[in-house]
Design a protein around this nucleic acid. Structure first.
Lengths: 216, 216
DNA sequence: TAGCTACGCTACCGTAGCGTAGCGATTCTC
DNA sequence: GAGAATCGCTACGCTACGGTAGCGTAGCTA
């Protein structure tokens, strides 16, 4: 948008990723984005550009030189919240799902990150652009679950009739619910019960869930 | 707060619920609250008093005569969103849970109501007072589920070791997840799969879940 | 119908926020 | 070191919002 190339880089014809941006420019853009994410954690989507400017030390005019509107800035910051998909492969569905859920629970219990999602989800109800970004973030969380379900089905560990996206909802849903709706702790007992429930019902070999019988 | 009794009603000693409020007062208070809830549906918690005034036809000064601050008005409107708890009793856990989940799904699929909850949940992350109201709303949804679980346990239909609040999370969680996070439709197939999963794993009589085998 | 009560209206005050203009000072690149 | 690209700063204009004051008027109760 504001990426006007300098004559030099265009003449040299180097299509490198730096795009002839000055060091200073990169620095202030990074500072602004970092601060914006920080404020996202604290205030949600309703953060103000003035506050970003104050806290980052970057002049408001400079911010507007790089992002045309407040919305553009906020949306770019939100996009940075997308997790890089990590799909574990321990060879068994129970272990894969335990890995993913425990990681997710850890994240929800500690990261300041988790205070932002409701704000984005709320805005997504009314703003198509936010909804798109939110969908991307959401997919980043759901995709690994879908993947391990499909893999388990290929291995014959799970019934093929199960819809991976439904399974994903049953795995993630209760965890999210605990964090944002019932606001109860997400402890070991909860996680174990959840896994046993979902795995036990969909699995061909019920004995698998027996070894995790000692809850709490 | 602004319920100053008139001399008449105090002298008469009639402790009736009308509290000597003038008809006009009741009318405008109702109009304001209705409009506020309406705006809650559209804009979430960030609605403005000016807009309430404009749309309701009630002067802003009048609004401030009845509610000391904007927050008080918004909170009272939120409190009206608490559902009255309805606990079905069909005699079997599967039927009770189907009843509750289908009602919930119906609500989430249609009611404008469902666009507000993320906004409240978001605010609850940062505001203790909103968190309290949100907890009340949330309890209104969860309590019936807890209750039918406990009843099923008493009847011997469900294992007594299961924590009702965990069961509730497993039932409501996936439904909420579908509505607000993955934003996928909440259809018959989903509901049936969910019920079969949760009931199947926690039940003593697995054959119960067999009759709902024809999904989609 | 008399009198009190509540209401509507207009006009405010102060703050916060978005976004822009102009200009001098830095900092980068060559 | 020269020139160009950016940056910071101050000062705006505009809108929206929360909340209040005063006054005239309409509606209610008795």
């Amino acid at each position: 948008m504001s990426n006007r190339k300098t004559q030099e880089s265009q003449r040299a014809g180097t299509p490198g990723p730096k795009d002839a941006k000055q060091k200073r420019t990169v620095r202030s853009q990074e500072r602004v984005l970092t601060t914006t994410i920080e404020l996202l954690y604290e205030a949600g989507l309703s953060l103000s550009v003035d506050e970003v400017s104050r806290r980052s030390g970057v002049a408001k005019t400079t911010i507007y030189r790089h992002w045309p509107t407040r919305a553009a800035l906020v949306l770019e910051a939100c996009r940075k919240l997308t997790p890089e998909p990590r799909v574990p492969d321990h060879g068994s569905f129970v272990q894969d799902v335990s890995d993913l859920i425990e990681t997710l629970a850890q994240l929800l219990n500690t990261a300041r990150w988790s205070a932002v999602l409701p704000s984005i989800a709320d805005a997504a109800e009314r703003d198509a652009e936010v909804a798109a970004v939110f969908g991307q973030i959401q997919a980043g969380h759901a995709a690994p679950f879908c993947e391990i379900v499909r893999r388990a089905q290929r291995r014959g560990e799970l019934a093929k009739e199960l819809d991976p996206s439904i399974m994903t909802a049953m795995l993630i849903g209760p965890v999210f619910y605990r964090r944002w709706f019932s606001r109860e702790p997400i402890g070991k007992a909860f996680i174990q019960a959840l896994i046993r429930q979902v795995v036990g019902a969909g699995s061909f070999m019920e004995q698998e869930s027996a070894k995790s019988k000692q809850a709490e």
